[in-house]
Each structure stands twice: as structure tokens, then as C-alpha cells.
Design a binder for these strands. Structure first.
Lengths: 223, 223
DNA sequence: GTAATAATATGAGATATCTCATGTTTTTGA
DNA sequence: TCAAAAACATGAGATATCTCATATTATTAC
């Protein structure tokens, strides 16, 4: 992890100003941090001392279960908060947050700002919206995971992550994300190829039949 | 649905005062409503005109999928909000909310209070906490549903809902809640009986072996 | 009260998904 | 650059879960 200083810090604070999110100045004690791919921004079980606001990159929320299984609960993208649970709740089991790409974020020291933040309607209003969306998304994922087999959820995921008709996510990450075994994921991918929806080329897959994939994904009803 | 008036209304507003949740008076346009068991408080897909605050009873959040499956996403208990998603988000697919027992709640007309509510730090702070817990609970349920078989989740559910050693939830409701088929639920319940964890007596089950059920439930790691 | 509806129950066969075993290829770190 | 670690790949058998079919009770509505 690198903490930006001087001009570099100034640059990011100007380029990605978050002044509009607060009704008081937060510049004084803010840090601009860069985490490398795979670095842990928050360790599972360890309360963070900062409230983070992501301005670039992508991170992953993980939780480890007692049976050793690891769930990738969700991704965090630019313009989203990290550590807001700990800011709000005195008791909370902290999940692990890992940078999935190089990730740049602002870090607000909680001990300095907590009181003011919890009195700031502007901040709270935006955070409330963010959390309401987060809760809805989790509810949707939860009910979909119970109501539909991998086939549908994978089709949706492929369409969401494919870039110019090419799907090339890492299988291991997708397993964690969709909550299925490696073996089963490969199985369903093979089926998609056999049915002509995709074509495997080395390590990547080319989408050949968008219509069929869409048909599978649409029944999830992600609105 | 019945709207309380006069003395009855006064009684509930005094007994369950929510003045401490707002920094401005909300009494003027508030309604006190009673919904009967199985009545719909909010119809799926229909935006509500009120923000509800439950003061008694229990309600269920449902979503209907395109394949006809219905998921019971979660329960709502006393001192929780209903309709907060619609208050916050202009576009939102409204889920169905059904009273699970007789449910009494306050109803605040959104068109009258929306502006003030979204400026009220006191209200927003509490709502933010509520939503953060909601998001966490959904995340936990999501990851548990992927990481553990019904056996574990059912053991947890039985321990949470049993009253004095007696489990007597309706099977159909439990299926929706745990997201499994009726057939499979009965199958696992039968296993629990065969293993001596419970004993079936007519339509109810008596818990015989708390230790084993706890062992199954504990691996979920619900902290 | 009686017919309709919802809930309980159970069997049998299908399918979705998992575990384990084993081998190859790619990436990473000293 | 080489060894270790991670990711990819595939087979085979087990298990969790689903669908469908069919009865038997409760509950509800008229």
C-alpha cells in the first residue's frame, strides 16, 4: 500500500473531489492510498481505522466460513464506500476486502470524523442510498441463488463481464463469486460450448449465441 | 386493513412513541394501521405512498421470480421500517410485503414528509444503521446459502424459531424462506428424526438433542 | 355444512452440484 | 532460471436437491 503525498495527492483530490458528499471540509486529515492487486485493504476480523471511498479500481468482499469455504460476496467499484459498517455499528464482524485491480481510495480517519459524519445529513443521505442499493442487490443475489441453477446465473455473469464478445474471467474467482465448485463451473461452461453458445479458444471463450445466453439470463429478472 | 382513529390511535402513538427517531414532529399526518394476517401491506411492483414503521407483529418480504418460484427474502419485525427503499430511490422494483401475523404500524405519507426526512440527520442516522444491518444480514444469508447444505441452515432455523423445545413452523413457509423444495425439507426433517435430534408428534416436532442441532447450526458462524 | 383450497405426506426417478483423485499448464517468487 | 504455487482440466462416483405424481388431512369461504 502506498500513501500519496504532495503533488500526486493534490492531483487526485482535485480530480476526484468528494467535497459534495459532505457538508463540512474533510480535506485536512484525508489520505489518498493506492493498493496493489491482491493486497488486502481490510483484513477479515480486524476493525479498520478508516472509512474508505474508492475512486478507482475494483475490490472484492470476502468472508471465510468455518468449513473453509470462501465466499466472494460482492465487488466494490469506484464511488463506493468501504468500512461504513464499522463506522455505523459498534459491534460488527469485519469482512475481508481485497483489491482486485490496482485500487485508489480516499481514507478518512474514523476517530477524527465519526462524530461529524454521523451528524451530517448530506453524508448520511448518500450513504443511506448506497446502503439501500447494497441491501437490494444482496437480496436479489440471495433469492436468485436459491431460485435458479448455475446455468442462468452464469449466463448473466458472462454477459455482464464479457468484453467485445470475449469472456475471460478466472475460473477460480468465478467459483467463489457464484458459489459453486470449480468442477461444476467447468461442466456448465462445457455445456455452453456443446450447445454452441460459446466457443473455447485457449483460455478464453468467444460468445457465439447472444440470444440463447440472454434467454437464460433474462429469467433472473435483474431489473 | 384498519386505520385506527381517536382514542385507539392516541393510545398507540403514546405507547410506541417514535418522536425520538425524528428531529421534527411527525404526528400530524401519521396514521396508525392494523393489517390482518396474510394481508398485503405493499403489493409487489406497486410503489407505496407511505413509509411504514412497524410497532407490533411480523411481516414477510416476498419476491416472485419469472419461473414462478417465490422467495421469502426476510422477515420484518417490530421497530423496523417498510418502504424505505422507495423513499430513498426514485427507481426501485418494489417487493411484496405481507403481514405474517396481525401487524400494527405507523404510516407516514411520503409526499408530505419526504423532503424533511431526507434532511434530518437523526432520522437518516437510524435508517442508515438499520440498512447496514439489513445489508449484512442479506450478505450472510447469501453466502451461507451457497456454502452450506440445508441440514445446517435448517438446524439454525429450528433453534431460532422453536419455542420451549417445540418446533412448529409451517413447512410451506419454511420452504420459501430457506429456498428449498417442500419435498427436500421433509426429507431432511425426517433425517433429523431418524438421527434422534427431534421427535415428531402430530404436526409438531420436539427437540431431543440440542447439542447435535447446535453443532450443525454453529458452523454457519452467525455472529 | 359442504365444497374448494391449502397444507401435509410419501414414493420414485431425474438433475444439479459436490468431493476426490490426478495430471497439465501457467504464473510467481527467490 | 528454476522450483513452488496457482490455475486449468478431466474423470468417476457420491450426495443434495428438484420435479412430478398421488393421497390424506386441515382450513377457509360461501
Amino acid at each position: 500500500m502506498e500513501i500519496y503525498k504532495g503533488k500526486k495527492k493534490q492531483y487526485f483530490m482535485e480530480q476526484h473531489s468528494i467535497a459534495h458528499l459532505f457538508s463540512f471540509p474533510v480535506e485536512e486529515f484525508i489520505e489518498v492510498r493506492e493498493y496493489k492487486r491482491d493486497e488486502w485493504i481490510i483484513q477479515e476480523g480486524m476493525r479498520p481505522d478508516f472509512l474508505f471511498y474508492v475512486i478507482g479500481g475494483k475490490a472484492k468482499i470476502y468472508i471465510t466460513h468455518q468449513n473453509g469455504k470462501v465466499s466472494l460476496i460482492n465487488f466494490i467499484n469506484a464511488n463506493e464506500y468501504i468500512g461504513e459498517m464499522e463506522l455505523l455499528n459498534d459491534v460488527y464482524y469485519t469482512k475481508g476486502i481485497q483489491a482486485s485491480t490496482k485500487t485508489i481510495c480516499f481514507a478518512l480517519p474514523i476517530h477524527r470524523y465519526r462524530g461529524q459524519l454521523l451528524e451530517d445529513a448530506k453524508f448520511l443521505r448518500e450513504l443511506t442510498k448506497f446502503l439501500s442499493v447494497k441491501a437490494s442487490v444482496m437480496a436479489a443475489k440471495y433469492s436468485q441463488s436459491l431460485a435458479f441453477p448455475l446455468e442462468n446465473r452464469l449466463a448473466d455473469f458472462i454477459l455482464q463481464t464479457a468484453d467485445e464478445g470475449v469472456y475471460k474471467e478466472k475460473h477460480v474467482a468465478v467459483c467463489d463469486y457464484l458459489g459453486v465448485s470449480y468442477r461444476h463451473l467447468l461442466h456448465v461452461l462445457t455445456q455452453f460450448c456443446e450447445k454452441g453458445y460459446m466457443q473455447k479458444d485457449g483460455r478464453v471463450y468467444h460468445i457465439k449465441d447472444y440470444a440463447s445466453l440472454h434467454a437464460l439470463a433474462d429469467v433472473l429478472g435483474n431489473r
